[in-house]
Computed example of a mutant assay.
Amino acid sequence: MPNENEIPNIDLPEGPVDGRHAFHAHVHAALAAAANQNWREIVLSDPAFDDWPLGERAIVDALQAWASAGRRLVLLAQRFDVFDREHARFVHWRRMWSHIIECRACEGPGLPQVPSAIWTPSWFLNRIDIEHGRGVCGREPEGRRALRERLDECLRHAKPGFPATTLGL
């Protein structure tokens, strides 16, 4: 019989991702698993994050449960302009946890295309067709490694983006 204080293990999906609803469900599952599986690093990557569920309360609650010292969240995008309009809860949470969050923008001619993906030390999601929400996810080391190489290539060219606060006169 499980201990009532024990956090239940969250099974992460593996295999094809087909459609926006499935993509959103996979994002929820991944971030819910983050604290449970003690992930030290999460990379969220998308050209614009305009169709991600990052503004939902459940997503911010999952990130809050995951966040602690020694953790690192990397956001990689071409642009971050959608956050203030569509992901207000996330923006508020990001201000409180800016010390563990790194936001990088990779946009410009000749720079690599930013993938739509989630990368963690033990699981990944790679959305290959953003328009139709299709991709693949799983635990396989080869898939995680290939995705990480693409992300690292973008990060090498990226500049700081999406500041936690804006200073003005």
Rank of each mutant, 00 (worst) to 15 (best):
A67R: 02
Q78K: 15
T165C: 03
G15I: 09
P2W: 06
D50S: 13
A164W: 12
D81R: 12
A117E: 14
R20L: 09
W97D: 11
S116K: 08
G15S: 08
S122G: 13
L44H: 09
N9R: 09
D81L: 05
A69L: 13
P121N: 15
E153P: 02
R134I: 02
E149V: 05
R95Q: 12
R139G: 01
A117G: 13
M1V: 01
H26D: 05
G161Y: 12
P47N: 10
R145L: 06
F90H: 10
L73F: 01
A146Q: 05
R94D: 00
F23C: 11
D129H: 06
Q37S: 02
L63W: 10
P163M: 11
V114K: 07
R134E: 05
A33P: 06
V60H: 04
V27P: 06
D61M: 12
N126M: 02
M1N: 00
G70H: 04
A29V: 00
A164G: 12
G161F: 02
A34Q: 00
D50C: 09
I59V: 14
L169Y: 07
P160R: 09
L54C: 07
V114H: 12
F162R: 06
V27L: 01
R150T: 05
E6M: 07
E56F: 13
D46T: 10
S98T: 13
I130H: 13
L12M: 06
I7R: 12
C103I: 10
Q78Y: 15
A34I: 04
L76C: 12
L12E: 00
P53F: 13
L147K: 03
E86R: 12
R20G: 04
H28G: 01
R156Q: 09
V82E: 09
E153G: 00
W123I: 03
T166S: 06
C106R: 14
L151Y: 03
V27W: 04
R71L: 04
E107S: 15
R40K: 14
D11P: 04
I42R: 11
H132K: 10
A88H: 03
A33M: 13
H87N: 10
E149T: 05
V114C: 03
L167S: 10
N3S: 08
P163N: 02
R139L: 04
N5T: 14
R134W: 02
R150V: 03
H99Q: 15
A117C: 06
I7K: 06
A33H: 10
C154Y: 08
D152W: 03
R40L: 12
L125E: 12
C103K: 14
F90T: 08
P160W: 07
E107N: 14
P121G: 09
D61H: 14
N38R: 15
D61I: 12
Q37E: 05
D129A: 05
A62H: 14
A48C: 14
P163A: 11
C137R: 01
G138E: 09
A33K: 14
R150Q: 08
D152E: 11
S116E: 13
A67E: 10
P141K: 08
T166Y: 00
I100W: 05
H157T: 01
V136L: 02
H99D: 12
I10K: 06
I59L: 04
M96R: 11
L44Q: 02
R71W: 07
P160C: 04
E107L: 15
G15K: 00
A25C: 03
P2T: 07
